[in-house]
């Protein structure tokens, strides 16, 4: 599980993440929903350790990312926003590189790559160089790369942005399957339908703060119009007020 404990991050005078606390338990999909620039990506960057919080802690399975980075990251699979691949390497070589950096080797690693190829329906892509892959194909390989060490926890930053309908559906199905297998999944999106279709728990983020939270049904019930969209709009306008 992933726990955010009063996280804070400032860039100069700008407060990007302002006292965010959140539990993303195992076996559930937790979504951070918010407009662009709300602080979702920065929050995730604090979780996967490429930025350090100015206050609070991010914990992966109870391990503090800032103080015990490598041990925490070993339990985390990460798909950053617009993650790039190595164009001169084949899909298999891209995945293998991450596997080796995660400490996997030899036959076990190759077998793991085959399992992931099946799970993500990589098929003939596996042997091809990734130069010229479509956005959907790139996301699939990036996901396989993030899952190569069988992490219990998964952080996905806008995993479906830029994908067509079919590819989006495939990613959603995969996320559900991983959740059913007991994984903890924390992901972000600025698309409301996406979050509604996928999340067990939602936190609406605006201006670096969580302005509303609950299950999709709970959030919809609080809104005057009775839909999740109304709840989203209401939460954002409330969050935007000084």
């Amino acid at each position: 599980m992933i726990r955010l404990d009063s996280l804070e991050k400032r860039f100069g005078d700008v407060v990007a993440v302002d006292d965010i606390s959140l539990d993303a338990p195992d076996g559930r999909v937790t979504g951070l929903l918010g407009p662009n620039g709300a602080g979702k990506s920065t929050t995730l960057r604090l979780v996967y350790g490429v930025q350090r919080p100015d206050g609070g802690r991010a914990l992966v399975d109870g391990i503090d990312v800032a103080s015990d980075r490598q041990r925490a990251l070993a339990r985390l699979g990460v798909l950053p926003h617009n993650a790039g691949l190595y164009p001169h390497l084949s899909a298999r070589e891209n995945i293998r590189y991450y596997g080796e950096l995660q400490g996997l080797r030899g036959v076990a690693l190759e077998r793991r790559i085959d399992v992931l190829a099946e799970l993500l329906e990589l098929g003939p892509l596996l042997a091809r160089r990734t130069k010229g892959f479509s956005q959907g194909e790139r996301v699939k390989v990036s996901l396989a790369r993030a899952l190569v060490h069988e992490p219990r926890n998964l952080v996905l930053d806008e995993p479906t942005s830029g994908l067509d309908v079919l590819a989006t559906r495939n990613v959603r199905e995969l996320v559900r399957r991983l959740r059913d297998a007991g994984h903890c999944i924390l992901f972000t999106s600025h698309v409301m339908q996406e979050v509604a279709a996928l999340c067990d728990d939602i936190a609406i983020v605006a201006r670096g703060r969580i302005v509303a939270r609950g299950t999709p049904a709970e959030l919809a019930a609080t809104a005057p119009g009775g839909s999740l969209e109304d709840a989203f709009v209401a939460a954002l306008s409330a969050g935007a007020a000084p």
Binding site: A72, L79, P80, Q102
Partner: peptide, 14 residues
Amino acid sequence: ERGSLEPLLTLPVA
């Protein structure tokens, strides 16, 4: 520029 640096830095590697 390719965007492959950020995922690389999320690995448990010094």
